[in-house]
């Protein structure tokens, strides 16, 4: 790990100004991913600005019925929060499907959004990687790509976003609140992460000096009908090969609201709200509907060899998650 300066942030403004004014400075929250990347010399910050003393550690109910998760609330605290468990069970399930208890106890809400890919080439400084060193190439396309993306890839990068929590946040339609030297703004979850394109080194639409202050959940949380299914190599403590977060609101067997997002298949949680409107809303909650939807959602998916199996697993996992969500709460 390289030498760096340590700064304890006393306020949002000062923290943002420090990072804006110091080349190579980074914010740190829980640090479970950043410190690991620093040990591999993938991240080499000149300074770390510790955000942990800032007042972003509470969960508060919003006036319109939503829930604000402060950026420093740990993944464990969110997963086991009574309001989250009751109103947003999809989020609890997704978080508890990820990492280990120790990591969830340390990792923060904001940091979970900002974790980097676990692509083996990204982690190995002895090999090229366009995400780590733009312009050097991507050996993953013809290499070890079992865990890599099948949707939204580019010539430059086929990495996946590793989060489980973010898949649920995408399905729920959360909003990310951020603050920086240019003021504060709200980012719809679907616009927070980006596809690699020709700039795979840029994971999100966040500016360098912007800090995630909270993640806001909408009033509707699919409390009655949701499911999170994660396909992985081990039963616990493994990243998703394919995961699906599915949430419905139903009226007499007809879908009135839907949120379906996939993890493990793309550079960001994969959701298509347009397809949900055209193929799910107003349709009966049955297997024909789910099948037609997955065909459209996964159209254009492409394998790279080792990850070809995802082309078979993703469709059935989408259908299974939608069935499980629709039937949640029914007597067997």
């Amino acid at each position: 790990m390289n030498n760096f300066e340590y700064v304890r942030a006393e306020g949002l403004d000062g923290a943002a100004r420090f990072v804006a004014g110091h080349h190579g400075a980074k914010f740190i929250g829980g640090g479970t991913n950043l410190v690991d990347l620093m040990k591999y010399n993938v991240e080499k910050p000149t300074a770390l600005v510790d955000l942990n003393r800032l007042a972003m550690r509470s969960v508060t109910e919003l006036p319109y019925g939503g829930l604000r998760l402060g950026a420093l609330v740990t993944n464990s605290e969110v997963a086991y929060h009574p309001v989250v468990s009751a109103k947003y069970p999809l989020l609890s399930r997704a978080i508890l499907a990820g990492a280990s208890a120790q990591l969830r106890n340390k990792a923060t809400t904001g940091g979970n959004l900002l974790q980097r890919t676990r692509c083996v080439y990204f982690y190995d400084t002895a090999v090229p990687c366009n995400k780590r060193e733009p312009g050097t190439g991507c050996p993953a396309k013809e290499g070890i790509n079992r865990s890599m993306a099948i949707l939204g890839t580019s010539v430059s990068c086929i990495a996946t976003h590793p989060s489980d929590m973010c898949v649920a946040l995408a399905a729920l339609g959360a909003t990310v609140q951020v603050a920086g030297t240019q003021g504060s703004r709200s980012i719809p979850f679907a616009e927070f992460h980006r596809l690699p394109g020709d700039q795979p080194q840029v994971d999100t639409t966040l500016a360098v000096d912007e800090i995630v202050t909270s993640v806001d959940l909408p009033a509707a949380g699919f409390a009655g009908h949701s499911a999170y299914i994660k396909v992985r190599d081990r039963q616990s403590y493994a990243f998703a090969l394919v995961s699906v977060a599915a949430g419905f609101e139903l009226a007499d067997g007809i879908i009135t609201k839907a949120g379906i997002a996939l993890g493990g298949v793309a550079h960001k949680p994969w959701r298509n709200a347009e397809l949900e409107r055209s193929l799910l809303i107003g349709k009966p909650a049955n297997r024909d509907t789910y099948h037609a939807f997955q065909l459209a959602l996964l159209a254009g998916a492409q394998g790279y060899g080792e990850n070809d199996f995802k082309l078979k697993i993703a469709p059935v996992t989408v259908v299974r998650a939608m069935e499980q969500a629709a039937h949640e709460g029914e007597q067997a």
């Binding site: 340590y6 304890r8 740190i28 640090g31 479970t32 410190v35 690991d36 770390l48 510790d50 942990n52 208890a101 120790q102 990591l103 106890n105 340390k106």
Partner: peptide, 15 residues
Amino acid sequence: DVRVNSCLCLAVMHD
């Protein structure tokens, strides 16, 4: 009183 991986904690952050 909360279990964490001490290898991923920077000591200065635990003042």
